[in-house]
Simulated assay, not measured.
Amino acid sequence: MTLPSSPPSSSPLSVHGDRHFDGLADKFAASLYGGVRGELRLALLDRLLPEMLDLRGQALLDVGGGLGQLAGWFAEWGHPVTLAEPSAEMLKRAREALLEASAEREIILLPAPLQALPEQAPGPWSLIACHAVLEWLGDPRAALATLAGLLAPGGQLSLMAFNRDALRFSNVVKGNLQKALDDRLEGKGLRRRLTPISPLTHAQIMAWSAELGLEVREVAGIRVFHDYLRSPPQTDDDRERLLELEWRYCRVDPHWRLGRYLLYTLVRRDTPVSPASSSVSSPTSSSTSLQDQEPL
């Protein structure tokens, strides 16, 4: 399958004010999935998702699927997967990884931003995953409204968001006291640094979910201890101990509240979301339709 290339732009942000990752795939992979923190993230999701979701082999929409790790996980669990990703470079990497790991699974690659999904992958979907995406968007509340509009009544949304409260705490631990006092926590998206432009609080997720007719069924913290360590674990035994600590306390109050990421299961109530709440910008002209894509 040939993927369209992204149009050249003088800005690292999209027309929607979102941060995409063309030209940053290597840095993205190393920063988010490299080393112990990446191992912990994937290991915790491997344990948490079967407990937090009702998995029955439903078709899955993976929004902002990046390098394809999550799509591959759901495919191995028997779900037909549509992976939507706006970055041509990231989608190419995902395709290569998924061809190698999931050759016999049904996976469709869709080069599209979240804003285009109501037209290109309207569903309704009984299962959607959107992990570590909202924090890179210019309007995360509108993005959540779009996701809610794509869900079927009773449908599940597995949402993972970068925790603003954890980012504040981490800055204090590092001695960035004035930055924390000024609440200057978000990145600008103008350089190669990977600080999210829209880190979110648990209170925001709860409020927006209530407004959009989404019920919060489950919540957990991802990496509630690791990111505050003075030095990373040096031995395999220490890595195992850390994983056990993370697993033991990731759903225990107050520990989960300081996870670097917050993981939610949101369920759409039977009452529909109002069109005004779910309205978003029109899709970009460079997107292509779902039916034009080939299964991986």
Rank of each mutant, 00 (worst) to 15 (best):
R95V: 14
T146Q: 01
A180E: 05
L262M: 09
K188P: 00
W256Q: 10
N171I: 01
L24N: 03
V81Y: 07
R19D: 03
E244P: 00
A132N: 07
L61S: 06
A166F: 10
L109Y: 11
A25W: 06
Q204H: 12
F225A: 15
L243Y: 14
V252Q: 14
A84K: 10
P295Q: 07
G149N: 08
R141W: 12
L242F: 12
V267Y: 02
T284F: 12
E85L: 11
G175I: 08
F169S: 02
G154Q: 07
Y261E: 11
G23N: 08
Y264F: 15
H202M: 09
S170L: 09
S287V: 10
L70H: 09
L181K: 13
N176T: 01
L243K: 09
K27M: 11
P113A: 08
L83V: 12
V36S: 07
E186D: 10
C250F: 11
R251V: 03
S10D: 12
S87Y: 04
L147M: 13
W77I: 00
P4K: 10
V173H: 12
E100I: 05
S126C: 05
D183K: 12
A103Y: 01
P4S: 05
R168N: 13
S126H: 11
L245A: 15
L134F: 06
S209H: 04
Q58I: 03
